[in-house]
Design a protein around this nucleic acid. Structure first.
Ligand SMILES: [Zn+2]
Ligand SMILES: [Zn+2]
Length: 927
DNA sequence: TTAGCCTTGAAT
DNA sequence: ATTCAAGGCTAA
C-alpha cells in the first residue's frame, strides 16, 4: 500500500491512504528500543538538512477520501504523520515512511489507534498535506499506550482495555514514538539509552490535535454548517450585481446569535457585530447613527502621520493579534495576518461552525499551529475583537466600512507616529521603575498616551465577566511591542464590566487583598497572558537544520520573529530521579485544617531578617563598572567575555551565581559563598520553621526539597555553551529550552501532589505555566540567595540589568545592540522584572516563600471552575504560605497579600517574555 | 482549506 | 493621486 505521493502529485487516490496504525508504531518503538536508533542531534541535523522550511510537526489527518467531502461513517479516518504547510519534502524521510508503511500492510481502518491531527479534513487535502513525512519533528500526542507487551493482542479491538491514554512525545516516523515516562502508566518506560540522548519533549497545551477519550479515540469531526448550507457565492469583482445585497449570512437573528454563542459559549460577551450591515456607500448620508451598541467615532483630530517609510517596517513588523504571524494591517477590526484575515472572512461568509476536537476549547493559536483547531482560532478571532459586521454581506470590495462598523473596531486607523511609540515605551519603563513597590504597578491597557486622542469607547471590546478573557492588556501587548502599533489606536477600554472578571484566583484572594485596595489591579493583571502560554516549540523553536542563517534569520533568532519553526525541544530526561528524603518527617499530618492556624499566631516575635550577610560591600564598586561587557570588538574575544560575564559574578555587577558545581565560579567571589550556603540551609535546621504548623512544615519541606531541581543557574556552566557559529547559538537556545523543560518536568513529578493531578491537567499546567515559573525563578533568585540591595536603587538595578543583558546578547549573537533598541523591545518587561527583583530583595523574600509562590503560580487557573483538585491543592499551599508569613513575619500583616500580588506581575512579565520570544533572557539574568 | 497576492473604491 | 481595508483569485 503506497499511498504516499510524490510531491505535487495527488495523494491517496481512491485506495487506502497511508497511515500509521498502532502496530506500526509499536514496531517502530520496538525497533527503537532494541536498536537504539533514536536519532541524536547529529542524526536530526542530518535529517533536517534537506528541509529548508520546517515547522513544528504534527500529526495530520487524512480522510483517505481525496476530493470527496462526504465523510462516510464507514470510512474511519486515518491519520498520518505529516508536516504542516511544507511543500518541500525530504525524499529521504518519505521513503522511509513508505517502506515502513509497506511493512505494515493494509491497516485495519477501525483500529482507531491512529494519531490524528485536529484538522478536520472535510476538504480535499492538498497533496502536501498528506502522507508526507519530511521533518524531524518532535511533538506530543495523546495516544493509546498499550498495557500489554504482547503485540499480537494489539489488534485494535477492545482498545479500551488494552490501552491507556497517555501523552507521548513523537518525532518523525524515523524515530517513531518515544514514550514519555508517565507516572502510573504501565508499559511506559524511558529506555536507558534514550535518557541520555535526545528526548523529545514538546510541550503543548493540548493533546496536539488528537483525541483519545475514555471511550477510545474519537474521530475528527467535521465542520458543520448551520441550517443555511448555501455555498459561498463568489461574486465577480466586476459583476454588476455586486451592489445589491445578495444574501443573508444569517437567516435570522437567532441564527447569528447561535453562531456567536457557539464560539463564545458564554465565556465572553461578543459585541462586535451588527445586523446586516453593508459597506459604506459613497454619498450615502449615514450620520453615524450610533444605534444600540455603537458609538460615534470622533475622527482623529491631530497628529499628522509623519511616519517615515523606512526599514522600520521590516525591522519591527506588525504581528497578528491572533497568531503572532507577520501582520499585514488592520483587518476586521484588529491587526492580523493575511491568513487570519482570510480565515475570518471565510468563516463568517460561509457561516462555518467548527468544533474543537483536540482540546477543550482553549487550544493554543500561533503561527505554527493556527490550523490545528479552527474552532479555537475563530474563537480567538472573536475574542480578540474581530468584527463580524466588517465582513460584508454584499461582498463589495474596496471602499470603507460604515462608521457603524468602524465603531466596533478595536484598533482604529492610523493615528500616531511611530516615534510616539518609542517615547511611550520609555515612559512606561520609567513609570515602572519609578514605582517603589511592585504591587503598585499599573498596567495600562492603552498603549497610547497621546493626550490629544480621546479614547473611544469600544462597545465590542467589553469582554465582560470572562474567566479566560484575553484582556485588552493583551491587545496592547499584541500591538504594542513588536508591531507598529502606533499607526493604529487601540481603544482604551476602561470598561467597568472588566471588573466582573471572576477569576477564582482573584476571588479567593480578594479578601486579603482588599485591604490594600489592589483588587482591580490584581484582576486585570491576572488575565494578561491568557493567550501567551506558548509552546516551547515556538519559543525555542529555532530551526536546527539551517546550515546558514542569513542576517535576517539571525534577527529572527534574536527576536524570535518567525522563529517558531521546527519545535526542537529535547527535554533532557537524563537526570535520573534520585529519591531524596521527600518524607523525612515521616508522618502524615492530615489531621489538621491547614487554614486554621494562620490567624492565631505570634504577635510580638521580632522577626530577624538579619540572617542575610551583608555581602555587598563591593557592590557599589561593581556597579560602577557600568557595562560589564563591552561588546566584543572581535569575535575572537567574545567567548572569553561571555564566559567571563556569565561566570564571574563580581565582574558582573550584582548577579551572583550559585548552585553550580563549577569550582572557579564559586571561587570567584569570596564573601558571597557563605551567603549561598546559608540560604540553602536545610529547613530542619532553620529554627524559624519549628513554629510552623506541622502540616505546613511537612508540605514546605517537600517543596524545599523539590525546589533544588529547579536551579537553572548552572545551565550556562557548560563548555559547549559558548557558541562559535550561529547554529551553535541555535543549539544553545534549544538546549536551554531542553534543560528548563526537563527540570520543570522533574520538579513537577517530584511534587507531593503530583499523583493527585490527572495526567492531562498535569501536562496542561506544565505547558501553560513553565514560563511563569521561569520568570518567578528569575526574579526571586537574588532575593532567595541572600542578596541585599546595599543602597542600590531600582533605577540602577534596571540599568544594570539592561546593560548586562546587552552585553550577553552582543556576545551571544555577535551583534551590537543599542540600548534604545533593547528598551523598545524589552524595556517594559525588563522594567517589571527589575521591579520584581528589587521588591523581592527589599522584602527579603525567603526561600520558603519562594517555593510556595512557585507552586501557587503553577496551580493557578484562570478558569475558576476548571478543576477542583487543582484549586484544593492550591489552597493547601496558600495556607502554607500564609502560615509561613504569619509565623515568620508577624510584623508584616500585609506580606501575604503582597506576595500574592507579585504573581500577576510575574505573569505579566512572563507574557511579555513569551511575546518577545527572547526566552534566553532569564538565563542571562540569573547568571 | 489556506494564505499570498491582486483588484477595488471610499476616504483622505 | 494615494491609502488601505475590503473582496477575489488561485497555487499549494
Ligand atoms: Zn494570524
Ligand atoms: Zn481547539
Amino acid at each position: 500500500m503506497t499511498s504516499v505521493s510524490l510531491p505535487n502529485t495527488g495523494t491517496s487516490k481512491n485506495g487506502s491512504p497511508g497511515f500509521l496504525d498502532f502496530k506500526l508504531k509499536r514496531r517502530r518503538l520496538s525497533d527503537i528500543l532494541t536498536t537504539s536508533s533514536i536519532p541524536g542531534n547529529t542524526s536530526i541535523e542530518s535529517d533536517v538538512q534537506s528541509n529548508s522550511s520546517s515547522e513544528s510537526g504534527y500529526i495530520s489527518y487524512s480522510d483517505g477520501n481525496h476530493g470527496d467531502r462526504n465523510n462516510s461513517p464507514d470510512e474511519s479516518p486515518v491519520y498520518n504523520i505529516s508536516s504542516e504547510n511544507s511543500p518541500e519534502r525530504s525524499s529521504h524521510c518519505e521513503k522511509q515512511f513508505i517502506n515502513n508503511d509497506n511493512e505494515t500492510g493494509a491497516p485495519t481502518s477501525n483500529s482507531g489507534i491512529n494519531i490524528g491531527q485536529c484538522r478536520s479534513s472535510l476538504f480535499s487535502p492538498p497533496p502536501y498535506y498528506a502522507n508526507t513525512i519530511n521533518k524531524m519533528h518532535v511533538g506530543v500526542a495523546y495516544v493509546g499506550i498499550p498495557t500489554t507487551n504482547d503485540e499480537n493482542q494489539l489488534d485494535g479491538k477492545d482498545i479500551n482495555n488494552k490501552f491507556k491514554m497517555g501523552l507521548v512525545p513523537v518525532m518523525s516516523p524515523m524515530s517513531g514514538f518515544i514514550p514519555l515516562a508517565i507516572n502510573g502508566l504501565s508499559g511506559v518506560q524511558i529506555p536507558q539509552e534514550l535518557s541520555k540522548g535526545v528526548q523529545p519533549v514538546f510541550m503543548t497545551s493540548m493533546p496536539n490535535g488528537f483525541v483519545m477519550t475514555s471511550s477510545g479515540p474519537v474521530a475528527v469531526s467535521s465542520p458543520n454548517r448551520l441550517s443555511n448550507d448555501r455555498k459561498p457565492k463568489s461574486v465577480s469583482s466586476c459583476g454588476s450585481d455586486r451592489s445589491g445585497p445578495t444574501s443573508k449570512k444569517f437567516q435570522t437573528k437567532e441564527t447569528e446569535s447561535e453562531f456567536i454563542d457557539h464560539y463564545t459559549n458564554g465565556t465572553f460577551v461578543y459585541l462586535g457585530h451588527l445586523g446586516g450591515l453593508k459597506h459604506k456607500v459613497k454619498n450615502v448620508n449615514e450620520s453615524d447613527v450610533g444605534g444600540g451598541n455603537s458609538q460615534t467615532v470622533k475622527e482623529d483630530e491631530t497628529v499628522p502621520d509623519m511616519t517615515p517609510v523606512s526599514t522600520y517596517d521590516n525591522k519591527y513588523p506588525m504581528v497578528c493579534g491572533i497568531c503572532n504571524d507577520k501582520a499585514t494591517g488592520l483587518h476586521y477590526g484588529i491587526i492580523t495576518c493575511e491568513g487570519c484575515k482570510g480565515f475570518f472572512k471565510r468563516t463568517v461568509q460561509n457561516r462555518r461552525v467548527y468544533t474543537c476536537v483536540g482540546g477543550s476549547g482553549n487550544c493554543e493559536i500561533n503561527k505554527t499551529q493556527r490550523n490545528r483547531c479552527q474552532f479555537c482560532r475563530f474563537k480567538k478571532c472573536l475574542h480578540a475583537g474581530m468584527v463580524l459586521a466588517a465582513v460584508r454581506e454584499d461582498r463589495m470590495p474596496g471602499g470603507r466600512n460604515s462608521g457603524e462598523v468602524y465603531n466596533l473596531y478595536k484598533v482604529k486607523y492610523k493615528k500616531h507616529k511611530r516615534r510616539e511609540e518609542t517615547r511611550v515605551c520609555k515612559e512606561r519603563v520609567a513609570q515602572i521603575i519609578s514605582r517603589p513597590n511592585g504591587q503598585q504597578l499599573e498596567i495600562n491597557p492603552c498603549i497610547t498616551t497621546d493626550k490629544n486622542t480621546k479614547p473611544v469607547s469600544y462597545p465590542g471590546a467589553g469582554y465582560h465577566g470572562n474567566n479566560n478573557s484575553i484582556s485588552d492588556t493583551r491587545q496592547m501587548y499584541t500591538t504594542g511591542q513588536n508591531s507598529k502599533s502606533s499607526v493604529y489606536t487601540t481603544d482604551c477600554v476602561n470598561d467597568s464590566n472588566q471588573t466582573d472578571v471572576t477569576d477564582k484566583w482573584c476571588q479567593k484572594r480578594n479578601a486579603s487583598i482588599s485591604s490594600m485596595g489592589q483588587a482591580e489591579h490584581f484582576k486585570t493583571q491576572t488575565c494578561v497572558n491568557r493567550d501567551s502560554s506558548s509552546q516551547l516549540s515556538c519559543t525555542y523553536g529555532v530551526s536546527q537544520h539551517k546550515k546558514k542563517l542569513c542576517d535576517e534569520k539571525m534577527e529572527n533568532l534574536i527576536y524570535g520573529y518567525g522563529s517558531s519553526k521546527n519545535g526542537c525541544v529535547h527535554g533532557d530526561m537524563s537526570q535520573s530521579f534520585v529519591p531524596r528524603k521527600m518524607f523525612k518527617s515521616g508522618r502524615c499530618y492530615d489531621n489538621r485544617d491547614t487554614g486554621s492556624s494562620t490567624e492565631s499566631s505570634a504577635t510580638n516575635e521580632n522577626c530577624s531578617n538579619n540572617q542575610n550577610v551583608d555581602l555587598t560591600s563591593n557592590l557599589q564598586k561593581l556597579t560602577n563598572t557600568n557595562t560589564p561587557v563591552t561588546c566584543a570588538s572581535t569575535m575572537k574575544d567574545s567567548h572569553a567575555i561571555l564566559r567571563s560575564t556569565l561566570t564571574q559574578p563580581d565582574t558582573n555587577m550584582f548577579f551572583m551565581t550559585s548552585g553550580s558545581n563549577n569550582p572557579c565560579l564559586l571561587s570567584s567571589s569570596s564573601g558571597e559563598q557563605s551567603v549561598i550556603s546559608s540560604s540553602y540551609m536545610s529547613p530542619q535546621e532553620d529554627p524559624k520553621l519549628t513554629s510552623l504548623d506541622p502540616r505546613s512544615r511537612y508540605l514546605l519541606d517537600c517543596l524545599l526539597d523539590c525546589d533544588k531541581i529547579l536551579d537553572i543557574t548552572d545551565l550556562y556552566q557548560r563548555d559547549h555553551l559558548f557558541p562559535e557559529t550561529k547554529d551553535d547559538v541555535t543549539n544553545l537556545l534549544c538546549g536551554l529550552g531542553d534543560e528548563i523543560v526537563g527540570k520543570l518536568i522533574q520538579w513537577t513529578k517530584r511534587l507531593s501532589f503530583f499523583k493527585e493531578i490527572p495526567l492531562d491537567i498535569h501536562s496542561q499546567l506544565l505547558s501553560s505555566k513553565w514560563h511563569e515559573i521561569l520568570m518567578l525563578i528569575t526574579t526571586t533568585y537574588k532575593a532567595v540567595h541572600g542578596h541585599t540591595l546595599n543602597g542600590m536603587t531600582l533605577e540602577e538595578l534596571y540599568t544594570n540589568n539592561m546593560n548586562h543583558l546587552k552585553g550577553c546578547m552582543e556576545c551571544l549573537f555577535k551583534k551590537e545592540f543599542t540600548v534604545e533598541h533593547l528598551e523598545t523591545e524589552i524595556g517594559e518587561m525588563m522594567g517589571i522584572i527589575s521591579n520584581l527583583m528589587y521588591s523581592f530583595i527589599k522584602m527579603n523574600l525567603s526561600r520558603e516563600e519562594h517555593v510556595c509562590l512557585q507552586v501557587i503560580l503553577l496551580l493557578n487557573q484562570c478558569d475558576s471552575g476548571q478543576n477542583d483538585i487543582i484549586n484544593k491543592i492550591q489552597d493547601r499551599y496558600s495556607s502554607v504560605l500564609s502560615d509561613i508569613v504569619t509565623s515568620h513575619r508577624p510584623d508584616q500583616p500585609n506580606r501575604y497579600a503582597e506576595l500574592l500580588l507579585f504573581l500577576p506581575q510575574i505573569q505579566t512579565a512572563s507574557a511579555l517574555l513569551i511575546q518577545s520570544k527572547m526566552i534566553y533572557i532569564p538565563f542571562f539574568l540569573n547568571q
